[in-house]
């Protein structure tokens, strides 16, 4: 027969009492169990199974960008049918800055080449959509070439000699020289906020070195102006930031007081030598034209500003045949 000690019995009874008390404490209607239960109900951790998916949409541009791009393309095509060249055209009503709206999230790539039939021309590709990476539209324009009024000091100088003066059109044309624009194979237009910390639409020329035109921020401050020397090449104007005054305004003053037969350059050099004008005035910048010579700022406009000259009829605008 097993021996039972009072200690063992006492221990078991004590444990039973503790168990009874704990059970009573935990499971009675107002006890901890119900409180734990109510608390755990309030914790809601949503768990789902399966990856979320996204659906694609046909890429498009916001309305303002779309309108700007379409206007640019339409103007470029129209210039190729110009009755008389050389001539100028405006592709935008925004004559105070870039002709295109801010191209954030979008870009335009223009590239010469041949189509599948071997016809030469240029592709006009618009990108946008998700991440700006998607192709929105692409069109091959037969016969089109591309050019810029930038890239070489002498070429920019030639352009300014011909057009940035107060002479009437028929006298300007007498100064015409072929090497006043640079044909290029491709151009790209996009928005940048990191080039020299200047925000704005940017035009880049892949063939040029990285430090020529391509590192200038907000350098499509063109007043929506395009130029064609021959009805085939369409020239864009990369710009440099001006000082709110087209320096060629001062050139025209110098011209007036020059000696008879003296060329503009000779007169300029004379004025520089005599310290009448700063030595840096009217230096031709290969980065492009002073934006004050293109985009109209606020009236009254610079007299030789291109927008103003178009308004005054001193520059020929492209008319369709």
């Amino acid at each position: 027969m097993a021996e039972f000690s009072f200690e063992k019995i006492g221990g078991i009874v004590l444990l039973l009492i503790i168990l009874a008390l704990w059970l009573g404490f935990y499971y009675n209607p107002g006890g901890a169990f119900n409180k734990v239960k109510d608390f755990s109900k309030s914790i809601s951790v949503p768990i789902t199974v399966g990856s979320e998916t996204v659906s694609g949409q046909k890429p498009s541009l916001p309305a303002a960008q779309s309108q700007g791009v379409n206007s640019l393309k339409k103007t470029m095509k129209a210039m190729m049918n110009a009755k008389q060249t050389p001539c100028f055209a405006t592709y935008s009503d925004n004559i105070f800055g870039s002709g295109l709206p801010d191209m954030q999230g979008a870009s335009i790539t223009l590239a010469t080449g041949k189509d599948k039939d071997g016809v030469e021309g240029a592709e006009f590709i618009v990108n946008g959509g998700k991440g700006g990476f998607q192709e929105v539209s692409a069109e091959f324009i037969e016969g089109m070439g591309l050019c810029v009024i930038a890239g070489s000091e002498s070429y920019v100088k030639s352009f300014t000699d011909i057009y940035l003066n107060e002479l009437p059109w028929n006298e300007k044309i007498q100064r015409y020289q072929p090497r006043h624009y640079i044909p290029v194979n491709s151009l790209k237009i996009y928005y940048s906020d990191s080039l020299r910390d200047i925000d704005g639409n940017h035009i880049s020329v892949p063939e040029f070195p990285a430090d020529l035109v391509n590192d200038e921020g907000n350098n499509l401050f063109d007043g929506g102006i395009l130029y064609t020397p021959d009805g085939q090449h369409i020239c864009f104007f990369p710009t440099i930031q001006g000082d709110n005054k087209c320096d060629w305004e001062r050139l025209s003053q110098a011209q007036i007081y020059g000696e008879e037969g003296q060329t503009v350059s000779e007169r300029l050099n004379q004025l520089r030598t005599e310290d009448i004008i700063p030595s840096t005035l009217l230096e031709n910048d290969p980065e492009g034209l002073d934006d004050d010579c293109l985009a109209g700022d606020t009236p009254p406009y610079e007299s030789v500003n291109i927008i103003n000259q178009i308004r005054l009829g001193k520059l020929l605008t492209c008319e369709a045949r």
Partner: peptide
């Protein structure tokens, strides 16, 4: 990089 769709220079 060459042109014809290429975008960046230099």
């Amino acid at each position: 990089l060459l042109g014809g769709g290429a975008a960046l220079a230099g």
